[in-house]
Amino acid sequence: MPMAAADIESMIVAAIPDAAVEITDLAGDGDHYAARVISASFVGMPRIKQHQAVYSALGGRMGGVLHALQLTTAIPE
């Protein structure tokens, strides 16, 4: 069962309230997305920790309901 882009965005924002999230459906199938997540909470965090925070926000759906997520994280400029 595919996951809606709006659901992904909502879960990320629920866990990282200041996040600006942009979701792109890469294949049109609801299983392959790209996400750009910008948050001040990432300041001082290594990139791997930033990504782990986003994956944690998805509550274990990676590899199951959500097959693939190309993830880019950043801090606000």
Rank of each mutant, 00 (worst) to 15 (best):
M1Q: 07
M62Q: 03
T73E: 10
A20T: 13
M11T: 08
R61M: 06
T24S: 07
V37S: 02
S56R: 15
H67E: 11
R47C: 07
M11W: 06
A27R: 15
A34R: 04
R36W: 01
I23W: 00
A20V: 15
I12Y: 00
I48S: 13
G63D: 04
L58I: 10
R47M: 05
M1V: 11
G59R: 15
P2R: 09
Y55E: 12
V13F: 04
A68C: 11
I8P: 01
G63I: 05
V21T: 05
R61P: 00
A14W: 01
A40T: 13
P17A: 07
Y55A: 05
D7F: 02
A5I: 07
I12G: 02
I16H: 05
P76C: 11
R61N: 07
V43G: 01
A35Y: 02
A35H: 00
E22D: 12
I16Y: 03
G59V: 14
A27L: 12
L66K: 07
S39D: 03
L66C: 05
E77R: 13
G44E: 10
R61H: 03
Q52Y: 00
S41A: 15
R47Y: 00
D18I: 08
P76N: 05
A40L: 09
V65H: 06
M3K: 00
E77V: 14
T24H: 06
H67C: 03
I75V: 15
M11E: 13
A57P: 02
V65N: 02
S41P: 02
A27E: 14
G44S: 13
V21N: 04
T24Q: 10
A27G: 03
L71Q: 01
A19I: 13
V21I: 04
L26H: 01
Q50D: 08
A14Q: 10
A68Y: 03
A57H: 08
A19T: 07
M3I: 09
V54L: 08
F42I: 08
L71K: 00
A34M: 03
S39V: 08
P17W: 09
E22P: 05
G30R: 10
A68M: 08
P46V: 15
L26R: 09
L66R: 01
G44C: 09
S41Y: 11
I16M: 07
V37R: 06
I38L: 06
H32R: 00
R47L: 14
Q52S: 02
Q70H: 12
S39E: 11
A74W: 04
T72P: 00
D18P: 01
Q52F: 02
A27Q: 14
R61C: 02
S41F: 08
M1S: 13
T73V: 09
P46Q: 13
E22A: 13
G28R: 12
D7P: 04
G63C: 07
D7G: 02
E77I: 11
A5R: 04
H32G: 01
S10E: 15
Y33R: 05
I75T: 14
M45V: 06
A40R: 11
M1A: 11
D7W: 12
S56P: 07
Y33G: 01
V43S: 10
R47W: 05
G64Q: 13
T72I: 08
V37E: 01
I75L: 14
R36N: 09
L26V: 10
Q52D: 06
V13S: 00
A35K: 06
S39T: 15
T72A: 03
A14K: 13
A5K: 06
D31V: 04
M3Q: 05
